[in-house]
């Protein structure tokens, strides 16, 4: 038993280290790639403050915030998906499918429509996540309460999620058509899931959420493991099932909401990444949460690089790249999962 434990910890350490190395390598490649190409050596020089003005501008003002934002959003959505899958004991749960992302999106578009113009400067960037959070909470509440019928059946949860999702989408279409052209563009671009206009304010507005919520998820990992066994067993083991579930759900919803506020609707990332993590490291939440965060960060950074450079100078929204990469895997899961 002890032996086994040690083996697992060793494996976890190995996986974590290799993922971090991959992220660092990818980080330098992504920093260098683009219309203005900069070699890895020059990237390091520039980061150390010895670059030309032009390199400084490209790296610090454009690429660096965008990459960091991708890392944060990827981690946020992946952990949100991991928590949702465990809490609902449903392998197909994900903030996108459950309508949480669209709910957040709806709130953000409401914000763009009614409030943004009356705010000045970067203040709106910091208030947007709060709105997204409200929208995400509303969607989660609707889905959970409508799926409630002597408890929450996982299948019903997914079906209700699909319905709520479609409802918010329809409302979005109606709302968007009432906007003036400039706001309409902002909303459309944002909804397709992209991080083109990433700047430091967006990074700073998302960072605290990630830094606070992911550690909470880690602290609660034990409760998550127990919940994953099913309500009856969890209650039998003395877990405060409903209380723990509520806290974890709130964490997942908040992570999704904040990520969506910064990066728009990015589908399927929260579904696929936790699956990969479980394949690599097993089902224990202590391990799957950090590994999911790392894989999610890596994947979104890579997807953004592909989207940025594949058809350069045209950019494909990162949400589209993620969908094309992960929808086939989702279909594979659909066929396999019972």
């Amino acid at each position: 038993m002890k032996q086994n434990q040690r083996q697992k910890t060793g494996r976890f350490a190995a996986v974590t280290v290799s993922l971090i190395v991959l992220i660092v390598v990818m980080f330098f490649i992504t920093l260098g790639a683009g219309v203005v190409s900069i070699s890895p050596a020059e990237v390091i020089h520039t980061l150390l403050g010895q670059g030309t003005d032009r390199q400084d501008l490209v790296l610090f003002d454009f690429r660096l915030p965008r990459i960091i934002l991708a890392l944060l959003i990827g981690a946020g959505l992946a952990v949100s998906g991991a928590i949702l899958q465990s809490v609902t004991q449903n392998e197909l749960a994900e903030p996108g499918i459950l309508g949480i992302n669209t709910g957040a999106g709806f709130a953000v578009v409401l914000f763009i429509f009614f409030i943004q113009d009356s705010l000045t400067g970067t203040l709106s960037v910091f208030i947007m996540p709060l709105f997204a959070l409200l929208g995400a909470l509303l969607a989660a509440f609707l889905v959970y309460s409508l799926a409630w019928k002597n408890g929450v059946n996982p299948i019903r949860l997914v079906l209700v999620g699909i319905g709520i999702n479609a409802g918010f989408s329809a409302a979005l279409i109606i709302l968007q058509l009432k906007m003036d052209p400039q706001n309409f563009r902002q909303a459309t671009v944002w909804l397709s899931g992209d991080i083109w206009n990433a700047g430091w304010p967006f990074v700073m507005s998302l960072l605290p959420w990630i830094l606070i919520l992911i550690p909470i998820a880690l602290v609660k990992a034990n409760a998550l493991n127990v919940l994953n066994l099913g309500d009856d067993i969890a209650a039998g083991l003395g877990s405060k099932v409903e209380g723990d579930r509520l806290i974890l759900l709130l964490v997942a919803v908040a992570l999704a909401g904040a990520s969506v506020a910064a990066g728009g609707a990015i589908a399927f990332l929260g579904l696929v990444v936790p699956h990969l993590a479980r394949k690599i490291i097993g089902p224990l939440s202590h391990y799957t949460i950090p590994v999911s965060a790392l894989i999610g960060a890596l994947l979104l950074m890579a997807a953004d690089m592909v989207g940025k450079n594949l058809l350069a100078p045209m950019e494909i929204p990162v949400g589209v790249v993620v969908s094309i990469l992960s929808a086939p895997y989702f279909i594979y899961l659909l066929i396999k999962v019972n």
Partner: peptide, 11 residues
């Protein structure tokens, strides 16, 4: 059926 529709539709 619903999920397959979502997946194929998104793709």
């Amino acid at each position: 059926l619903a999920l397959a529709g979502v997946a194929i539709g998104t793709l």
